[in-house]
């Protein structure tokens, strides 16, 4: 059964079908939130919120629209709401050690792998917008067309954003390697 067909059944009142959508999407959404916030608890809560919102606003799902884009748009809004309310994200000024501690809380194996650790710290030092576009296109391997739908922009624009983000990431990574 396709995601879209399942979502239509949820919309029509068969809420139990939401658990199949949960099984299909929760890990990806959790990783989306985790890699954009580097906060395990938050990743858990925001993933949970996304599915609660999916159930609560099921009637707004339009037949014919792609479920994946719809659910990711919801996830983005949830993250944006959270970000607006708590501007506590680690910025460029945060110390490497502080980020390292945060990463250790996410998964203690991260810091054991030097390359993975530096990658995440570099990612962390990008703007949330850059992180987001990298997570969607690269980490989650969504097609540019799909990401353009989620971000409500053109494919060309997504491509430019991805390229800029990769270059920014490269610069941050090289900086860290020098330390």
């Amino acid at each position: 059964m396709t995601d879209e067909a399942l979502m239509l059944e949820v919309k029509n009142g068969d809420l139990k079908k939401a658990s199949i959508l949960f099984d299909r999407y929760h890990k990806r959404l959790y990783n989306f939130f985790l890699k954009i916030s580097f906060d395990k608890e938050l990743g858990h809560d925001l993933t949970q919120n996304t599915f609660l919102r999916l159930i609560k606003y099921r009637k707004t799902y339009k037949e014919g629209s792609k479920f994946q884009s719809w659910v990711y748009q919801m996830a983005r809004n949830i993250y944006a709401d959270h970000y607006r309310k708590n501007k506590v994200l680690i910025s460029d000024y945060d110390e490497v050690d502080e980020i390292k501690n945060k990463l250790e809380l996410v998964d203690e194996t991260i810091v054991q792998d030097e390359r993975e650790k530096l990658l995440y710290i570099s990612l962390f030092r990008l703007t949330p917008e850059q992180r987001e576009v990298l997570i969607l296109t690269r980490f989650q391997q969504m097609k540019y067309e799909e990401v353009a739908q989620v971000l409500e922009t053109s494919v060309a624009n997504v491509k430019v954003k991805v390229h800029r983000a990769i270059k920014a990431l490269r610069d941050k990574y090289l900086e860290l390697e020098k330390i």
Binding site: K27, Y30, N31, R138, F139
Partner: peptide, 9 residues
């Protein structure tokens, strides 16, 4: 980036 892995909730 390509070598990145998914984390388990």
């Amino acid at each position: 980036i390509n070598a990145d892995r998914e984390h388990e909730p």
